[in-house]
Design a protein around this nucleic acid. Structure first.
Lengths: 185, 185
DNA sequence: TCGCTCATGTAATGGGTTACATGATTCA
DNA sequence: TGAATCATGTAACCCATTACATGAGCGA
């Protein structure tokens, strides 16, 4: 699936693997992320399949850059994927829920500690969303005003991130209360 | 991680790979699932590491069953994992959000179609939660009343599933409206 | 001087899916 | 008669992470 994320970003403009890593982990990091090593390997495969081309740009005092450009075949592959409807429910894995599910043997206090750490983690994430991210989209639009309709979609997925954290924090607060009442020491 | 799910279930009572598949995909299916092939392979590794033992039970008119039992070392490994706090934020991947993020090139109608299919998928899932699952926990408790405190935790993770679907449906409804207003044909 | 940014990649390993292979019983 | 349930496994493959390898410039 990473390949489609790469094609998606290269559809905006040509860039290097290093830059792609940045865009992926900042813009889509909330629902799709990747390590540099995987990005370089995937770009190599995409080039073998003629979905992207690359050329090396020499630089002074800095390592050379390999800039990737989407081909017509690449653009077509991207659009085919975009148009493909997702028809079945895809459950997502969640380490915390798995652990909580089986946690009775470690007892009330250890469970509550686990949940309180998570509450802290998700409250921070929630604050991050509220404070920092809305302005990022605005600043991109100042540089590329033609992406206004893309930005509507970016904002929509950003709102999902916010709603998700709001829900998660609410669940943690409720669950902490529930366990304080229901589980013995 | 599947190994911990298997240890977790075997901590309730000994069972076969086939039975484990059932428990995993019904009880924890919402936040952890696995194919039979992976379960059999993982059980093999767990036995090599002495975290479980197995013995074959012959059956008439049915294939023999290989029943797995948790060892003391396995129980310890499970408890160590349970007690280990999760301290960093783990982003989850979401195909739909990735697709929506890049979807401007396919245009308004195709995006709306995609979202409406998802709305249907998630409303069905929501109904499933409301109608079918609460009774499942009740029926297990009738057979094993000593698991009452475990059931509090099962119910908590079930509530997360419900809240998640409620949130997802709300996001889809809002996003459909937003795109109808903001994106051109 | 220490860590960050820029910049590219390979190799080994781990986790998970898909495909293959077999076969009896039971229910609609 | 065909699908579901019970029951076990292997092999090939794909996707992703971790570790390894290199190296200059810049700001605190």
């Amino acid at each position: 699936m990473l390949k489609f994320a790469l094609l998606g970003f290269l559809n905006y403009f040509p860039m290097t693997g290093y830059e792609l890593e940045n865009y992926i982990n900042v813009s889509t990091g909330n629902f799709w992320h990747a390590k540099l090593s995987q990005i370089y390997a995937t770009l190599k495969k995409l080039e073998q399949d003629d979905l992207v081309t690359s050329h090396v740009e020499a630089q002074e005092d800095r390592p050379d850059r390999r800039v990737y450009t989407l081909t017509d075949a690449g653009r077509e592959t991207l659009q085919d994927w975009l148009a493909q409807p997702i028809t079945d429910y895809v459950p997502k894995k969640d380490d915390l829920l798995l652990k909580i599910f089986f946690s009775r043997p470690i007892g009330k206090d250890a469970i509550l500690t686990q949940l309180r750490i998570q509450l802290d983690v998700h409250r921070r994430k929630q604050q991050f969303y509220e404070q920092e991210t809305p302005s990022v989209i605005q600043s991109i639009l100042e540089d590329f005003p033609e992406l206004a309709e893309d930005a509507t979609l970016w904002q929509a997925v950003l709102r999902m991130g916010m709603m998700h954290e709001e829900m998660y924090v609410r669940w943690l607060e409720e669950t902490i209360q529930e366990i304080e009442r229901q589980i013995s020491d």
